[in-house]
Design a binder for these strands. Sequence first.
DNA 1: ACAGCGATTGACT
DNA 2: GTCAATCGCTGTA
Length: 187
Amino acid sequence: MKRLQSLFYSRDTITVTRELLGKILVREIEGEKISGRIIETEAYTGPGDPASHAFRGPTPRSRIMFGPPGIAYVYFCYGVHHLLNVVTEKDGTAGAVLLRGLEPLEGLDRMMKNRSRKTENGLLDGPGKLTQALEITLSLNGDNLTKGKELYIIEGGTKPGEQIITAPRVGIKDGTDKLWRFRLRPI
DNA sequence: ACAGCGATTGACT
DNA sequence: GTCAATCGCTGTA
């Protein structure tokens, strides 16, 4: 399958957020392949989006959102979880897509072990859960998804009958007026 | 230099 | 439904 290239990510953040639904996130580690189908995403832009880390301009943490597209932006949240984003827009413009949910494809056993689960229930249905399952930590922050060997996204589409649900983003104080959360099929 | 708090999760009542 | 965990980033001084 074809890996998504820089031109895919280099577009309007909302468009990329919507079009990442159905694509396949792949993690390669220790010769094993772990992957899942992206089913939930959220958009975060720059100045103008009070919920975004980039709202007040570049900081040591958020400057990566202002950089070139197709780069992983991983950050540590609540002192507990790693959250994975993909940088969008052309170099110099801030934007990123938060990956919030996957459907398991490959490496189910390893994902369940990583999550201490015996079934696939609750395995990948949250931004902190999918990073734990795919062993994504700060070491992947700044990784180029269009070139790296450890983490990348490949082509994939929606299934017949699947529809996209639009909703307000969750877990934020400001910016809840925007419908920038996207999900495949009803919960 | 430091206090406050967060793009969450899981355990518990 | 409620709440603690846990730490690095950020704004303010």
